[in-house]
Design a protein around this nucleic acid. Sequence first.
DNA 1: AATGAATGAGACTTCATTCAT
DNA 2: CATGAATGAAGTCTCATTCAT
Lengths: 224, 224, 224, 224
Amino acid sequence: MDARVEPWMDELLQLSFESDRMTEKQKRIVKAAIEVFAEKGFAASSTSEIAQRAKVAEGTIFRHYKTKKDLLFKIATPAMIKMLAPFLLREFRGVLKTDYERFDQFLRALIENRIEFLEQNMSLFKILVQELPFHPDLREQFQQIVLQQVMARVDPIVSKFKAAGQIVDLPVATIVRLCVSVVMGYVLARTFIGQQSGSRWNDELEREATIEFIMKGLAPSGRA
Amino acid sequence: MDARVEPWMDELLQLSFESDRMTEKQKRIVKAAIEVFAEKGFAASSTSEIAQRAKVAEGTIFRHYKTKKDLLFKIATPAMIKMLAPFLLREFRGVLKTDYERFDQFLRALIENRIEFLEQNMSLFKILVQELPFHPDLREQFQQIVLQQVMARVDPIVSKFKAAGQIVDLPVATIVRLCVSVVMGYVLARTFIGQQSGSRWNDELEREATIEFIMKGLAPSGRA
Amino acid sequence: MDARVEPWMDELLQLSFESDRMTEKQKRIVKAAIEVFAEKGFAASSTSEIAQRAKVAEGTIFRHYKTKKDLLFKIATPAMIKMLAPFLLREFRGVLKTDYERFDQFLRALIENRIEFLEQNMSLFKILVQELPFHPDLREQFQQIVLQQVMARVDPIVSKFKAAGQIVDLPVATIVRLCVSVVMGYVLARTFIGQQSGSRWNDELEREATIEFIMKGLAPSGRA
Amino acid sequence: MDARVEPWMDELLQLSFESDRMTEKQKRIVKAAIEVFAEKGFAASSTSEIAQRAKVAEGTIFRHYKTKKDLLFKIATPAMIKMLAPFLLREFRGVLKTDYERFDQFLRALIENRIEFLEQNMSLFKILVQELPFHPDLREQFQQIVLQQVMARVDPIVSKFKAAGQIVDLPVATIVRLCVSVVMGYVLARTFIGQQSGSRWNDELEREATIEFIMKGLAPSGRA
DNA sequence: AATGAATGAGACTTCATTCAT
DNA sequence: CATGAATGAAGTCTCATTCAT
């Protein structure tokens, strides 16, 4: 349970919180870059626009980030890590404590925690999702950090509930995939549909329906 | 049930099958463009590379498509329509006949039909998903064609199963969202994980688990 | 004597005379580039200035030459070859016919032929001399083409005169080095000093002195 | 014989030896600049690389040298002077004492002295040769210092040997040009060819051949 | 219809130089 | 004196698009 955080992970974690060490201008650059990348996509974003929005000279960007791609990576890597912080950091690990008695308690806690995060970091999330398919190195990072680290921490918890007969007997990876799909779908729908002017999106209802859907979907099969 | 296909829809449908009217070179251009767009993303693709792959002169592309964006649209619009063909075209509407007795029969038929399509048109699908966020006009088309048209046809069917007490009493939009999320998650996982060299992806198991997950998740709540 | 021209050499030779195949604009670009490179040096030359002088758009340069460096190379390689044409091409080989009875006849013929060439191609020569130290690949080409090819052709001739006791018994390479040094010195002085306004450069005298200096310097040692 | 050193020359001479007054950092800057300039050429060298190699901040360079070009000049001018030191400075003037009985003694002494210097200052020499063509002000300095000063001192010596019938009756400038050409050719060949791995450069032989070549080339013509 | 040379706007990036600390 | 972050002009190069052939 007390899975140790590897040393290199510590380093990464610090990376993701080093915004303290950034100069004022660097922060403006990163903020502007996140905005522009999210709005137009990485390839369609120009460093000149980023510079303008950040109110710095274009050259300043390249003093801090060797290339445009470097800027993307220096944004994307910490973003990944922040998304996983609850799974990695001791102080965040409260949400993962295994003494939830019921799976739906655990699921609800996790989902609510991450949904909140995603909503506050929609742009980062969008950039990640958009660019992962086009940058093999980014994708590898994602696999190593997200898939492996998260799975390593989630597996024992899910396994426990499986053993307790609370959820269906499927591979943990499959269970996680199903959960993630549904939650992502919820977040996307909320973002796209919810933003539309005339739409009526009853968030409470949708969230409840989503969680219940997962719970029922994962209920042990031979329940009858 | 025999929802009429509106006139403008006819036009669109023809658009999506007008490959017959295309010259040999046009077909090569479209094929090359789909490849390149899917590989690198629209913004990072160059017309020159498309021309090279299509083995035509750069100028030829612009003889058929006013701009690069026009090329994207002339690819994306038919793509959307092809994806919806089963919902729109009479001859395809077999999969949607409402005389399925059970919801899972209907779901299974639909899912299998569309999964097959997606797999054969992965590039088109990828382009659509990638570019929708960046092209409001494309997005609007998507909403008008996909959301409205499909919902118009799916709604009565789902409503029937709801009325029959076979599935949970949630808004049809919510039910569709949940289904689509899960299916997309399945397709994505299959594509990403399945392609990895050392991975063991038991497709039959995963697909069955996915469908069962949906079925259970949508089972009427007060079932007991 | 009828040393065959190797196949790859044929190719190179054609390269150096393919100006026929060049479009009007390409010729202007090359001409402008030679001018600017010679005036400012390669590194200090800007493609924008070259474009202006050639009266083409900057982009046009890069349609024909992938990079600025490519432009340099596409200029330098044929330049080297043209300089060696008399040593390589059959039709030029008149100057090298070995039936000169005396070494000074041979030397004089060669020098005058090459001096004339150098004067008509001063810019090319200057570029070569300036850039050779900074481009290893160019230097290697130079060594393979100039040093090896020329030496292969000059060696038998010089050896003959050596055997005939007309010139000093030193390694051919040394003899060539001494001759080349002196001729280069003559050309450089002529160019630098001769161009100065108030200078009195008696070309006939200098050239004669130069050739006589070489002849005497290379006279057999134990002449007495 | 005791040609006075003009006052302004004193200043220059001190310039070239003022390294004593340089701070530690200045010395590092100059050393780094010489390295980089020689390696890449002035135009292709960046002040940032110089700063890095000198292990000083970029700003520091500009505290001591107003511009990059100023740095070049502050390097090049003393370099010229050092090269001429034997001709200018009293204490060095030993090599130039006119009481050599034979011209070849004088020549040998001078050549050996300068060759040694060149080899120990190859980078400086290379920079000078490379940049002279592109900086008119540098060139003018060179002409005023080198050509005029050196000629003023060399002329009487060479004239003496001419008068004594030891060497050919050509203008002193011509004689000097011939000597310099040959010596430069020797130094260049030694540097380029001698550095190559598999090359066999017999330095003693080459140097002796070079000097003998000059001697014979300059021998009085009507000697017979 | 097809070509591909030509264009020029604009992309990313470098760099000498300045200046507040 | 020294620093190094910041600048913005200028550099190389790409690219969608046009047009004469």
